[in-house]
Design a binder for these strands. Structure first.
Length: 206
DNA sequence: AACCAGGAGACAT
DNA sequence: ATGTCTCATGGT
């Protein structure tokens, strides 16, 4: 007898069927992706787009250029996406981290997922979700993002989901691993969950 | 005009 | 360990 398909796989299929393939993460470069991950914290994407546009306008959306900016000047540019003091500081810390780790072009293959995660978590302003998102979309690590939408979706489907990111992540770590999603699937999965969550849909998919 | 968005940190309990 | 507050802007 064969094992029944995991609920995660079922949800993934249902989401893909409903919303189709997503074009995520919306960024032209890896650097832009990482900055976007910081800017979007608790903020609507439309506001992040304004900041990204402003950064491009001032030619500040490269590692070298951003490092030349003072925290105060960066604040003004990224202002539309809110939390500007904290986010400008985080962006600059991330820039320095990229430099010291030579982490712009290479994928840091010498670091395990856990090592990379804790390294990123060491930066002020980068918490578990932002770290995971950067790992998934910038460093090609197969990771499931346990954001609010994901936790909401899973609890809607009858699971007892811990309320915080880290606890949910640990609670389902083995289930996610057992589902054996590919990198591309996990990248799509997060995108689909967010897009689905934005529709405020409270109906069960399976 | 409240309420929320693709969170995280500081602080009190 | 586990809650609660605050941070900031723009859309609905």
């Amino acid at each position: 007898m064969q094992k029944e398909e995991s609920v995660f796989r079922q949800l993934y299929s249902a989401l893909m069927e409903r919303h189709g393939r997503q074009d995520w993460w919306p960024a032209e470069t890896t650097f832009e992706m990482m900055i976007g991950a910081v800017l979007v914290q608790n903020t609507a994407w439309v506001n992040v787009e304004k900041s990204i546009f402003a950064l491009k306008e001032t030619n500040a959306l490269t590692l070298e250029a951003m490092l030349q900016l003072s925290a105060e000047r960066l604040q003004i540019i990224i202002r539309p996406s809110g939390f500007m003091k904290a986010k400008s500081k985080t962006c600059l810390a991330l820039c320095r981290w990229i430099c010291t780790n030579d982490a712009l072009e290479n994928k840091l293959g010498h670091m395990s997922d856990d090592a990379l995660r804790s390294s990123l978590l060491g930066l002020s302003g980068i918490g578990p979700e932002t770290a995971d998102v950067i790992m998934l979309y910038a460093y090609d690590r197969p990771i499931f993002i346990w954001d609010t939408y994901a936790r909401r979706l899973l609890s809607l489907h009858g699971f007892d989901v811990p309320q915080t990111y880290e606890k949910a992540r640990r609670a389902f770590a083995s289930d996610i691993a057992a589902a054996r999603f590919s990198l591309e699937d996990l990248a799509q999965f997060h995108a689909l969950i967010v897009e689905h969550g934005k529709q405020n849909s409270a109906e069960r998919l399976i």
